[in-house]
């Protein structure tokens, strides 16, 4: 707990590993994806009232991420049952992980936790195949950051 960053982890930093639940009986670790790029998308909450929200957009461009052989992973502090319902409702094609217990621990390790609101920031990380952060971006919490920045970062990995 002692070495938590006070801002978003920067490019060049090794991405902290994590092991978080994706379903009630399955967990996903970052290290499982070593060898391919990973896009980590921290977002504040499952049920946001915006039409075409951030996770739905990533769902639509899932095939483009695949062209870079990249894995996209969503993370919020919502519990796993909320994630299951949200994922089903939006027909998500990728995993969303629950940073629920200890609450926000992974987000804190990435410098992507909003203490005062008790939720994760809207923060994006592109991690290369060796587990090094190559791009990070903090979006205003109410603004869906889109996907152009992620795609550019993935292009720059090559």
């Amino acid at each position: 707990m002692s070495n938590l960053p006070n801002e978003l982890l920067k490019p060049g930093t090794e991405a902290p590993d994590f092991c978080l639940p994706s379903t009630p009986d399955q967990k996903v670790s970052l290290s499982e994806f070593r060898g391919k790029p990973v896009v980590l998308a921290f977002y504040p909450a499952d049920w946001s009232p915006v039409c075409g929200d951030q996770m739905s957009l990533y769902n639509e461009i899932f095939s483009e991420f695949k062209e870079f052989d990249a894995q996209i992973i969503g993370i919020s502090v919502d519990n796993i049952w909320s994630h299951l319902a949200f994922s089903k409702h939006n027909k998500l094609k990728f995993s969303i992980l629950s940073d629920f217990e200890p609450k926000g621990q992974t987000a804190k390790e990435y410098g992507a936790y909003r203490e005062k609101d008790g939720v994760t920031e809207r923060a994006l990380f592109v991690i290369d195949k060796n587990g090094i952060i190559r791009w990070s971006y903090l979006s205003p919490v109410g603004v869906n950051p889109g996907a152009d920045g992620i795609l550019e970062a993935l292009e720059n990995l090559e």
Binding site: Q54, L57, E60, P145, D148
Partner: peptide, 13 residues
């Protein structure tokens, strides 16, 4: 069209 939108930062409609 869709891809040109994504590249232009379109994040919703």
């Amino acid at each position: 069209d869709f891809r040109s939108g994504v590249r232009s930062g379109v994040n919703g409609t």
